[in-house]
Each structure stands twice: as structure tokens, then as C-alpha cells.
Design a protein around this nucleic acid. Structure first.
Lengths: 68, 68
DNA sequence: ATGATTTGTCAAGTATATTTTATATTACTC
DNA sequence: GAGTAATATAAAATATACTTGACAAATCAT
């Protein structure tokens, strides 16, 4: 499932995927893959993204109705 | 830095590291390493742990005063 | 419409999360 | 204090996050 909250938070800061990637120290493809949702970043990367975008983990990465 | 909130939440459920590891589908050493804090789990594992312990990401993995 | 920037995607490589096996130590019960 | 469960820790192997380079499609400005 796509991470639209991340995409939205990034857009709200006026950052391209490349710009966010530079700020958090990963490649553009990694940011792209996270937004597309077909993968599983490390918590440290998630934390770096959250701090850069002034959001918390729950804001961007918590999923409410997941497992039973 | 150790993750004492995780340790505390696990203890509050009366689970051993092994028991939590079984519930979330990883090895005991992985849970131990996360609690000891000297590493960097994936967000999916963090989510699985949070759901098992009835906590959110911010409860267990958010760190307030981190980067400048 | 053309050019530039951004985004989606792929394949091959590198770094590292996680497993497995094993041992030592600490706590708990009897 | 012996015996057992829980925790800390390490080395080698495996799975996978992440990189690099490349190219096409989409978006945006001129």
C-alpha cells in the first residue's frame, strides 16, 4: 500500500524525492520505494524522514487497522 | 541507547524475549538486540511488536530530542 | 510543443538486518 | 546450593535494505 501521508508531508515542505533523499542520506530510489509502499525501511530511516518533515512515526508510518 | 520502553511494555504483558520473538516471528536474539538498542530493526518488525504489545510506534520507538 | 525536472522502474552490486548455533551469565524456584 | 528459565553476547551464514547507473513516462514551465 502506498504511503500517501509521506508523499503529502514531503510535498507540504516543497521537497522532491531527490531533495528529501539528500536530506536524510539515502538514494532517491529508496525514498521513491517507500512512498510507493512496496517495502520495508529501517526505523532509523523512518525517524530521519520524520524529523526532516516535522512529523512523528505515528503520523507517517502507523497503520491503524492492521492485524486482527 | 537501550529501549527501556519496549522492555517495560513486554514485561507488562508477562512475555519473555523468546515469547515475544515467537509472536512477532523473529529470533530471540533479534528481540534482545532491539532492547539492548544497538541496532536498527525494520519498520514492519517495529509495527508487529507494537501491535503485539498494544502500543504505537511513538510509544515505543519515537525519540524526542534527537537531531538538532 | 520543447526542454527541464520529477517520478516510476529495472538489474546488478554492496551493506546490513536477521538467523542459526553456541556459550556464559544472571535470576528464580526447589 | 543444584537445577531450570531468562538474558547477554559472539561468529558465520542467509535474507533483504539500500546503492548505483540507466532509461522511459509523466509533470511543469517557458
Amino acid at each position: 500500500m502506498k504511503n500517501l501521508r509521506l508523499r503529502s508531508a514531503r510535498a507540504a515542505k516543497g521537497l522532491s524525492q531527490q531533495a528529501l533523499a539528500d536530506l536524510v542520506g539515502v538514494s532517491r530510489q529508496t525514498v521513491n520505494a517507500i512512498e510507493r509502499g512496496d517495502y520495508n525501511p529501517t526505523i532509523r530511516l523512518c525517524l530521519a524522514i520524520c524529523r526532516t518533515l516535522d512529523k512523528t512515526l505515528d503520523d507517517l508510518f502507523w497503520e491503524e487497522n492492521q492485524a486482527p
